[in-house]
């Protein structure tokens, strides 16, 4: 696709390798160059499934764009096509459909030159040329570290994020740029949001630290935010609450069984709620319990009664507020976090 016409040169030249020379006249959209591109595209289509309607990358596919831009018609299906199994690789991250692979080698180069992991390569030759991991092994056996760089660079739907299959195509999602919540490298990426759910993480080319690169946690470790274990209401031990039985009976609060390892039952034989049972309450109640207890302790013991564990996972602004709260309101400097751990 990179061929261009250069005046006085014989045939078409590859734009990516031909050095520029003084006085050189290059025509990028010459008739010959366009015809060759059309031919290349049509050749690729003769061995490509015509399934854009159901393809994950519909609307975000370089092949589709080029076919459109160069006005290529879909060729009659006539001749040999590759039939590869779809999603044959047991790894949980990268979805493979080699039927869509155009052998552009971007994944090979991304893995070799950027990720330096050399998982992908081409095997066999001619029409039989095929993208393989390692010695035609499952990706994880071929030293793949699941960074998803190959997916990020795939121009078509041959490599895709397995966790995101069927959850939303590019025009159906909203992209929100953010910074990763795992290690301290500070990678930026785009959260792909659809109907209030994170359906995919995609690389952001202009990310200042990481560019297109991400690691397995950053790219594929986002689904914890939707985990059913997420806490959704404050929990308070029954012993700190007034009128527990009544308000639980009324359905205002709920007795919860979050503490699986608890030794004693939360409800005794006569239906009384044990003092250390967790009750799901409302914010007002929970905050009042905490503020009340803290105020009481401060009055009795002063600031030394408190210690605060701040968090390396919270934002700068939040940490500032924790510090302010500890020092200004609780009256102690005993705030620390797991910087050392």
């Amino acid at each position: 696709m990179c061929v261009v016409s250069v005046e006085k040169a014989r045939g078409l030249q590859t734009a990516c390798t031909t050095p520029v020379a003084e006085g050189m006249i290059v025509e990028t959209e010459s008739e010959a160059a366009c015809e060759t591109r059309q031919f290349v595209l049509e050749m690729l289509l003769t061995d490509h499934p015509n399934d854009c309607m159901t393809c994950e990358v519909n609307g975000d596919c370089k092949l589709q764009d080029l076919v459109y831009d160069y006005g290529v018609e879909w060729p009659e299906p006539n001749g040999r096509r590759h039939v590869y199994p779809i999603d044959p690789d047991p790894n949980p991250f990268v979805f493979i459909d080699l039927n869509k692979c155009i052998l552009c080698s971007r994944c090979v180069r991304a893995c070799e030159e950027i990720q330096n992991r050399d998982v992908w390569s081409f095997a066999f030759r001619g029409f039989e040329t095929k993208l393989v991991a390692g010695t035609d092994q499952p990706m994880l056996d071929a030293r793949c570290e699941s960074c998803g760089q190959c997916v990020a660079y795939c121009p078509v739907g041959a490599l895709y994020d397995k966790m995101s299959v069927g959850l939303g195509r590019p025009n159906q999602v909203e992209k929100v740029r953010t910074t990763c919540s795992y290690c301290g490298v500070g990678c930026n990426f785009d959260l792909n949001v659809r109907n209030g759910e994170i359906v995919r993480v995609t690389s952001a080319e202009d990310a200042p630290v990481n560019g297109m690169a991400l690691c397995v946690k950053g790219r594929y470790g986002y689904d914890y935010v939707h985990h059913r274990d997420r806490l959704t209401r404050p929990l308070v031990r029954a012993k700190w609450l007034p009128d527990v039985e009544e308000r639980v009976t009324e359905g205002e609060w709920t007795l919860v069984e979050v503490a699986e390892k608890r030794a004693e039952p939360t409800v005794s034989g006569n239906g009384a709620i044990a003092g250390d049972a967790f009750i799901e309450t409302d914010w007002g109640t929970a905050l009042d319990v905490v503020a009340g207890k803290f105020a009481k302790e401060k009055q009795a013991q002063g600031g030394d009664a408190f210690s605060v564990f701040a968090s390396a996972k919270c934002t700068n602004e939040e940490n500032y507020l924790f510090s302010k709260f500890t020092r200004q309101v609780l009256g102690t400097n005993s705030i620390d976090h797991c910087a050392r751990l």
């Binding site: 060759t36 290349v40 003769t46 001749g79 040999r80 066999f124 030759r125 001619g126 029409f127 040329t129």
Partner: peptide
């Protein structure tokens, strides 16, 4: 065919 260029890789088969 080495398989690098689509015109040769696919064209020769066609």
């Amino acid at each position: 065919s080495c398989g690098k260029c689509p015109p040769c890789r696919i064209g020769s088969t066609r």
